[in-house]
Nucleic acid binder design. Structure first.
Lengths: 231, 231
DNA sequence: GTTTCTCCCTTACGCTGTAAGTATTACAAC
DNA sequence: GTTGTAATACTTACAGCGTAAGGGAGAAAC
């Protein structure tokens, strides 16, 4: 067999593998990202991937790396100066930027939870946020608490459980009637919420609004504690 | 062969399966909970489990159900009256109770994320929290926001990523020196935090303190918004 | 021209959840 | 006591997973 195979297809690089893995996960979810399918997508055998990566986890780390590179791009770099804004505003913008990226790659939270390592660009992201708060005058101690309080919200997600099976549609009257027996308070709340926003095409609630609501409470609380810190 | 097998061992009930699954997950983590190992632990073949459960997910749901039953027990029932306390205090106590239970079963968050269904007792838990806030005078709208803001914290966990590989020990001077180049702000913060609490046997930080800090910010912020709500 | 290195492939193993079909037991009816 | 029926557990087998071990073609280096 001539040099067809080697010459025709582009070389198998780490970049290409991670990029393909990303589009595979974007398209079919994390479950569809298997070594065999990934190899097939690249026109290669599964075991060939192990020349460039020690194992699948290394590919997952590559996905995180790439994701945070996207976040850096979305933020226009990881600055530590608020430049005109308050630190809260700057941090808020950055976090909402991270959220926009993660909404394009909804499988990322799951990967972040399965991998407990801190890939470089992810470390730089956190570092930049520490620096931003630092430039706002917060103490290291308060910042430390803040990182924990923000938690996953810092990356733009906070896991939310859907309330019914599919979660895509609003509850019908029948559903609410059945719920009223077992979980009366919950049913009453939902009935009112659904009634107030009957045109909602977002299912039961507006994720973005909820996210910002929770985020703002945390940012408010931190600012208040910062003010109290300097007597 | 006489009736030895059937007579000697207790019947294979849903209860017994779920209880055994729980101790298996408690002991060796979620990965060690496989159908084959679970069956072996019960003195039975793997496929026998499928007579009592349609699939593994049903067993996982059983684990969640059992977990929230434990939470209910820990709370002394799911009351919706603050009974002497403010709603914040009552909710705080309940959430910290849930947290105590989840600390005994650290694999529960992972199961909750993998299953998007709402098992009955879990629904009643949420319902009780809605009722508790309702009895404190909060509007359904604010409660709705609150549930999202609290998120997983409501169940007693907020996923926290460890900052280094093992995460069990404090960083050495060498680690900090290496970090100082790549993530200077982060390294500076950690250096100060570690220095302030050199006796900490908890690794880099005190999870419980961080958890309560974040929780209190959210509860404060909600109370403040409630006050603003009634002009 | 031989060796060495790079990159990819082949085969195979142990593990997973579970579909399909079968055997054993317990008990009631005849 | 035999037989029918339902409940319960077992057997076998399959497709898929990550990956260990080793092979082999081509290019590069000496």
């Amino acid at each position: 067999m001539p040099q067809r195979s080697v010459a025709e297809r582009p070389a198998l690089t780490r970049e290409r593998v991670v990029a393909t893995a990303m589009s595979l996960a974007d398209g079919g979810g994390l479950d569809s990202l298997t070594m065999r399918r990934l190899a097939e997508e690249l026109g290669v055998e599964a075991m060939s991937l192990y020349y460039h990566f020690p194992n699948k986890n290394a590919i997952l780390d590559g996905l995180l790396e790439r994701t945070f590179a996207e976040i850096e791009d979305e933020s226009g770099g990881f600055s530590t100066e608020a430049s005109g804004d308050t630190w809260q505003q700057a941090l808020r913008d950055r976090i909402l930027g991270a959220r926009r990226v993660l909404l394009r790659h909804p499988w990322v939270p799951a990967v972040m939870e399965s991998r407990s390592t801190l890939v470089p660009t992810m470390a730089r992201y956190i570092d930049a946020n520490v620096g931003l708060m630092r430039s706002g005058g917060l103490s290291h101690d308060l910042i430390h608490h803040a990182m924990h309080a923000l938690g996953s919200r810092q990356y733009g997600f906070s896991q939310e459980l859907t309330l019914d099976g599919d979660g895509s549609s609003s509850p019908g009257d029948q559903d609410l009637a059945r719920m009223a027996e077992m979980v009366p308070h919950l049913a009453a709340m939902l009935q009112e919420v659904v009634h107030d926003d009957p045109e909602s095409t977002l299912g039961w609630c507006d994720d973005q609004t909820e996210f910002e609501f929770g985020l703002d409470i945390l940012l408010d609380g931190l600012a208040r504690r910062h003010a109290a810190e300097e007597h």
